[in-house]
Simulated assay, not measured.
Amino acid sequence: MTDDIGRLVRTESPSSDLAAVARSAEVVAEVAAPYLGTGPEVLTADGRTHLRWRLGSGPRRVLLLGHHDTVWPLGSLAAQPFTVRDGVLRGPGCFDMKAGLVMAFHALAALAAVGTVDGVTLLVTGDEELGSPSSRELIESEAAGCAAALVLEASADGGALKTERKGVSLYEIRVDGRAAHAGLEPERGVNAAVETAHQILAVAALSAPGTGTTVTPTLLSAGTTSNTVPAHGLFHADVRVRDTAEQDRVDAALHGLRPVLDGAQVTVTGGPNRPPLPRTASDALYRRARRLAGELGIGELASAAVGGASDGNFTAGIGVPTLDGLGAVGGGAHAADEHVLVAELPRRTALLAALVDSLLAAGGSTR
């Protein structure tokens, strides 16, 4: 398994580099071939490469969902090479989430050797880290009609499964003012930087800590030179919510922003990107996973609610029972200390195989 993960990690796949993602898809298919016994369907959308294996000929009952793109730019391996030392595997993208893909290959191979994988679909997308702009429709269409979606994203702290994820909305707020000389006649201008400051405060005030809603202004720019009243300002806002009512409230408020300064204009673009993944979508699957973990001798299996989103938000959003965080145990996603605990790989792979087998044996029922 560590050799397979190494091949994937050494094939860098930043989401924004279409050629790199296409090369990564080829390597993912090569690594999977000995385990799945068949090549994938290669699906491209907007130049982005996704892979789909539909195993067996029966009705689709279980969807395994992952991605092979990462946040790491080309060249990251030079500073953070792939290593396995003292039981810890490191390298850009190992935890989020190339180890999860390898776990899926090995789990399905183990099932095929002793039983069946008929009715299982494995979907590996290439743009998850961008918000899945080209793969969302594919994800939802593959999930539709399935009894369960099992997401191979990395676990939460301590190996906890992710049973609740916040929904995500993304916005760009543009401010237009009027330029003027900052020393000679600033009164003739409409200061877009000042208007942007007003709007940032208004946007940040939409947060509601009591309900878990965070509205965070992020990327910011304004002005052209140090002696010119800024004519334009721009900032982005990242919104995380636990329920769709909050997502709708914040969306209406953001699109209802109005300028404070006379002569300024405010334009808001964007909106909800991923719906929330509520605990109700994962609860039955989590209980099943806990029972199986006990039978396997893995021990107590914790759960966690997290602020980050995944493609599991989409499957839950269309009403498919979804359990997330079934991938690697480790930490440091998107960070220089990204790592996977090697000893947990076979245990978590056994749990994944048992969960798929249990669902297939039950005819896909999550109960």
Rank of each mutant, 00 (worst) to 15 (best):
P186C: 09
D69E: 07
T125C: 06
L341A: 12
G145E: 00
T196D: 09
R85N: 03
S358H: 11
T211H: 12
G210W: 10
P272W: 03
A113S: 14
S221N: 14
R347K: 15
A302V: 05
R174L: 10
L8F: 08
L326M: 06
L341F: 08
L359S: 03
S135L: 11
F82L: 11
R287D: 10
V28A: 10
A143H: 05
H67G: 07
L74K: 09
L323Q: 08
R165A: 05
Y171D: 10
L201Y: 07
G47Q: 10
L301K: 02
A333Q: 05
E41S: 14
G270E: 06
F314W: 11
Q80D: 07
V268F: 09
P346K: 05
F95A: 12
H339K: 09
A333R: 01
R348P: 07
G363Q: 08
A154G: 13
A19T: 15
E185R: 13
R290T: 14
L261S: 15
H198D: 02
A293D: 13
L254P: 15
L130E: 11
Y286R: 13
A143L: 08
V114D: 11
E246Y: 04
G210A: 14
D311M: 07
M97V: 08
H334Q: 10
R249W: 03
R347P: 01
D311F: 08
A284Y: 10
M97P: 12
A154S: 12
T83H: 02
V175H: 02
S76W: 06
A179P: 12
Q80P: 00
A192P: 00
R7C: 04
A32E: 07
S226G: 03
V194E: 13
R165V: 04
A362G: 14
H232P: 00
V9D: 01
L355C: 11
G308T: 01
T196L: 15
L170R: 15
R10D: 12
A245E: 13
P59E: 09
D69F: 07
T315Q: 06
G75S: 04
R60L: 00
R61Y: 07
G263D: 04
G332K: 00
G233V: 13
G100L: 00
V241P: 00
R348T: 11
V320A: 07
I173S: 06
V329Q: 02
V175K: 02
D262K: 10
P14V: 11
R347I: 01
P92M: 01
S15A: 15
L18T: 15
A281F: 12
R61H: 05
A29I: 03
T83Q: 12
L234I: 04
G327F: 02
P186H: 09
T228P: 00
G91W: 00
R279I: 10
P92D: 01
A361C: 07
A302D: 15
E185P: 03
L355H: 13
A33L: 15
R258S: 13
E140M: 14
P278I: 09
A252D: 05
L55D: 06
R279L: 13
A343N: 11
A284C: 10
V27N: 01
K98W: 01
L55F: 03
L352S: 04
W72M: 04
A208K: 08
